[in-house]
Design a protein around this nucleic acid. Structure first.
Length: 434
DNA sequence: TCTGGGGTCCTAGGACCC
DNA sequence: TCTGGGGTCCTAGGACCC
């Protein structure tokens, strides 16, 4: 059977999430900033039209903000929850689906015998997602994932498609590919673009027609797959179940420079706690822990960057155990007299928890630890992240990242759920939770 | 002035083994 | 004398994605 894929992509996802609960900013220029309110990472169409570039430093926006651009700190609690709602909605429309990122999913359209008009079906998906979640999407349909991605780009680019583009309805695929720059092909980044341009390849069509031998030699097997996919041979299968992670990183840069070991330890403890939580969520344990520490490479001041890797006595996912080892590593790394910008932790050699080799000395207390971890995870699941935290994480958290323009966690915190006023006349005391 | 945070896959080359 | 030919494992680095 012929493969067929649909790629559903949420339009300007972070901005759209902000708009769902804040309709005043509908139709207005809106940007969302990266962690620490550093750079622009999402823009509404109106902001794009004003010339705000992706990655623009936030201070450049200050002027724009004065001119009426709305800016928000990243609110991952909100975006993560909205993403789940979108994905849940999508999963009802296809037997197989791959969640590709926070705002994108591939659906398999190969086995939908009851659907006669797939393009119409895509319009129906779009309408439903919008109605159920408030998030606008674009959908591309093609015989390979790479072509579905490309179709999605065309759906976004040309308003007359109204958000859906089905590449197989267009017999002159080559003509379409001729109109797409090579850097807009999925899998072609800056380096390959340079290389390809130097070799006279500027369009997706030219890449499609490039000789296999040359592509394999200069762009490895991954590049060759991309080329084959452009030709309509599906080489990148749908991955319904995400493979367990092989490494888990948790790291943040600080909202202000940090000098003391004590503060670094607090920050590191909270990152370890996050990483350990992710580890337990996939029912895994880790054998190695790497701690890294660094100053701000963009500043003209004394630099220090270093990392240290230690092997744990027994593979584990116990937060307290991991914090202890992380702190030991940090103490070895730490040099006083520097302005530190970030620290973080990297867990590797990850294996399923029931595969882990116990060592002779593993203590019987690990059973108690398991119960403690499960209990804490349950509480935080039920009542929200960080309901229970480790004392080592600190309370003040003066190093916390800057988020001066954070919107409420509308969907995941009881205290921040929007409130509807029943009627203006009855006054403020008659308010109802949504 | 600011410059995120998380991942994946592939290859080359060196060490080492028989 | 000659120094092959096959293999594994590990690491570093480079590319990509969102």
């Amino acid at each position: 059977m012929k493969d067929l894929f649909a790629l559903v992509d949420c339009n300007n996802f972070y901005v759209s999430c902000e708009r769902v609960f804040n309709p005043i900013i509908e139709g207005k220029p809106v940007v969302v900033l990266s962690n620490n309110d550093g750079n622009v990472v999402a823009r509404s169409n109106e902001a794009k039209a004003l010339g705000v570039q992706f990655g623009a430093p936030a201070f450049e926006c200050e002027n724009l903000i004065k001119k009426g651009v709305y800016a928000f700190s990243s609110n991952y609690a909100l975006y993560g929850d909205m993403s789940q709602r979108v994905m849940n909605t999508l999963s009802g429309f296809a037997p197989e689906m791959e969640i590709y990122s926070i705002d994108e999913a591939f659906l398999s359209f190969s086995r939908l015998p009851s659907v006669k008009d797939l393009t119409g079906y895509a319009f129906q998906i779009r309408r439903t997602v919008k109605r159920w979640t408030g998030i606008p999407t674009s959908i591309g349909i093609g015989p390979t994932k790479t072509l579905a991605k490309l179709a999605n780009k065309l759906a976004k680019r040309n308003p007359e498609h109204r958000g859906v583009f089905n590449i197989i309805e267009h017999p002159e695929t080559d003509k379409l590919l001729d109109g797409v720059r090579v850097e807009d092909v999925w899998g072609i980044g800056v380096q390959y673009t340079k290389l390809l341009n130097l070799n006279g390849i500027f369009t997706a069509l030219q890449l499609k027609n490039a000789p296999d031998r040359w592509v394999k030699k200069h762009m490895t097997i991954t590049g060759l797959r991309t080329v084959w996919e452009l030709r309509g041979h599906s080489c990148i299968p749908l991955e319904e179940v995400p493979p367990p992670k092989k490494g888990i990183i948790s790291s943040r840069s600080f909202g202000r420079p940090v000098e003391s070991l004590a503060e670094l330890k607090e920050a590191l403890a909270s990152y370890v706690s996050r990483a350990a939580g992710k580890l337990r969520a996939q029912r895994s344990v880790a054998l190695f822990i790497t701690v890294f520490l660094g100053t701000n490479p963009f500043k003209d001041e004394p630099q220090y960057h270093n990392s240290i890797t230690s092997r744990l006595p027994v593979p584990t996912s116990h937060t307290v155990e991991l914090i202890r080892h992380a702190h030991r590593g940090l103490e070895e790394l730490y040099r006083s007299g520097f302005h530190y910008k970030r620290t973080g932790v990297f867990l590797t050699e990850i294996m399923p928890e029931d595969h882990a080799q116990l060592n002779l000395f593993s203590s019987p207390s690990s059973g108690k630890q398991d119960i403690l971890m499960k209990t804490i995870d349950r509480i935080n699941m039920r009542w929200g992240n960080n309901t229970v935290i480790y004392a080592a994480e600190g309370i003040q958290k003066g190093w916390r990242m800057r988020q001066l323009r954070l919107s409420p966690r509308f969907t995941t915190q009881w205290e921040e759920i929007p409130v509807v006023k029943a009627s203006a006349r009855r006054g403020d005391d008659e308010r109802h939770r949504l």
